[in-house]
Design a protein around this nucleic acid. Structure first.
Lengths: 328, 328
DNA sequence: CTGTTAGCGCTTTCAC
DNA sequence: GTGAAAGCGCTAACAG
């Protein structure tokens, strides 16, 4: 590996001068500067980022904890997160979060990243305290299922979004609306059920516990659960799935079971990924502003890293009404 | 920040001993070990990975260069890459590759990663030479459009896969088959066109240049291009899209233009992402073994990092035949 | 078994 | 303007 020393020797200067040149300090004589640059070019020298990080105590990396990148929704978020980070010369360290391995995560993150971006996951109290002690800023993109008082959240107002969807469904004649959720309270989309419950209450609608279906956030599980429910009999007329993968799974289950959407059952999603607009019937969905949320969350995290104290923006979705909830 | 020194002082030992304990060297007396571990626990100490990397010259990170994570296909690859990397305690440094910024990329990567995983991108000769000089192993997951002699490729045999698809289309009565591609030769899926051409030749079919449509790898562009083509008139009876996002875009264009699939035009994709099985009519597609390829490519890269010289595996796709190419 | 110590490649203060 | 040198937190000889 070519080091700064070699460049310095070859250029007949000290390592300090090479540093000055690389860090664009204008204190270097132009002539020396050119000489150093020439040698750098000649040798193809690149500074070692790790050594630099150790000294400056800045890594130029942020960790993004993902839940399941197989879900296009997360992929779409990642796209904008990385784009924004890159603009500020930050790189993204990308890690799948497993609640059972929070301990190990601390080890891998320590000294390697300048901040952490959660994608709706819940950190244990202990982890929160740890990162806080280490002065590692954390931002959560999406409301976690369990509240974490000191971690800012960038998200839409889910209650508002859910109400808008429920109002639409009522207009279509539905008042028995089921909800498909994703497991435990640790799941990144767990909060959507909480918001849905509240929205239903606001709208004065009942939500019996039997209307809560478990889809684990995945297509396959949603398909399986709804298929079972359909054969066992059901009395709701619409179903809202906490994410679009599950909504598509529900649609597939209906197709398979001969249930006509939207006539016998209306289906809606909460994200509006590309797939939702392309299935048949196309899915009505809350259109989650992935770009805005992704950019805003990353911007907030970066500003926190820089010590600024920006406030968390309010973002808004909209409703994409399509054939899965509207009889022609 | 808590350092090794503090732990050592508090435990009444030297920093070396703390190191030995952390690195599980069995040379430490059990009693001392316990004492050190107790202090580590008490203080919540975690070793700084950056400092460790500087010393060991291993970062425990691999760079994955992505093209467009908004495409679920890449997201799916990422899933398995990270899974595999994690098993070997490697983390994934995730970066969108822009050909125009290869120079900067060298700077960000230098000293930060132990290896590079390409997702079908083409590196300039100069970059290849640079990474080779730096002894940074590179593996390409997917065949790049332009060959890079010293970079191992993990992929399916595209000519075989394409031939299988073409044979299927012929069985359905198609011999005028168009291909939708993605731009320039630098595009990660550019190779699929090359393979398609060769497969067509093998099958003794003509492929006039007018049958090559430009879809830029994206849904929107595919939709736009095919819509234009459909209105201007066309004489092919089937179309193969280099990726599924474009295939879905073609399907949407047909729907919009009133062209019946598969009756007036058959459509097929090359990846078989979830979306392809859920649109109507469901898309026939080469089923790309994302898991196998993702795992194998990562494994190969990790073994190269460890200095092993494993050979590149041969992987096989299969054809998922669905309604978009088969008249009922 | 444990401690001392020399770096890893870089930045930056301080002296010249 | 430039150089010497300290030190970031860690590992691993080597000495004891």
């Amino acid at each position: 590996m070519i080091t700064r020393k070699e460049v310095a020797d070859r250029a007949g200067v000290s390592v300090a001068v090479v540093s000055y040149v690389l860090n664009n300090r204008s204190i270097v004589k132009e002539e020396t500067r050119q000489k150093v640059l020439a040698v750098i070019n000649e040798l193809g020298y690149r500074p070692n980022q790790t050594a630099r990080s150790l000294k400056t105590r800045k890594t130029g990396q942020i960790a993004v904890l993902v839940h399941f990148v197989g879900n296009p929704f997360e992929g779409g978020l990642l796209l904008y997160i990385e784009k924004k980070a890159k603009l500020s010369n930050y790189s993204v360290f990308f890690h799948s979060f497993e609640p059972a391995r929070e301990e190990e995560l601390k080890n891998t993150l320590m000294g390697r990243v300048d901040g952490i971006l959660l994608l709706g996951q819940t950190l244990s109290e202990e982890s929160q305290a740890f990162y806080s002690l280490m002065e590692l800023p954390i931002v959560s993109l999406m409301h976690p299922g369990v509240s974490m008082p000191n971690i800012p959240v960038v998200d839409v107002d889910w209650v508002t979004e859910m109400r808008r969807l429920i109002v639409h469904l009522r207009e279509q004649g539905h008042d028995r609306i089921a909800f498909m959720t994703a497991g435990d309270s640790q799941n990144p989309i767990a909060y959507r059920l909480i918001a849905f419950r509240e929205a239903m209450r606001h709208e004065g609608l009942e939500l019996p516990e039997t209307y809560i279906l478990e889809g684990a956030g995945r297509f396959e599980m949603a398909f399986h659960t709804l298929t079972t429910t359909l054969t066992q009999g059901f009395d709701f007329t619409a179903i809202v799935a906490a994410n679009d993968l599950m909504a598509v799974g529900c649609l597939a289950a209906c197709r398979e079971s001969g249930i006509l959407v939207p006539y016998q059952l209306a289906i809606a999603g909460c994200e509006d990924i590309l797939m939702s607009s392309q299935v048949s019937p196309a899915l009505t969905a809350i259109s989650y502003p992935r770009m805005e949320v992704g950019l805003a969350a990353t911007e907030l995290l970066l500003s926190l890293i820089d010590g600024d104290n920006r406030k968390t923006p309010r973002l808004e979705g909209k409703l994409s009404v399509r054939a899965s909830t509207v009889e022609p």
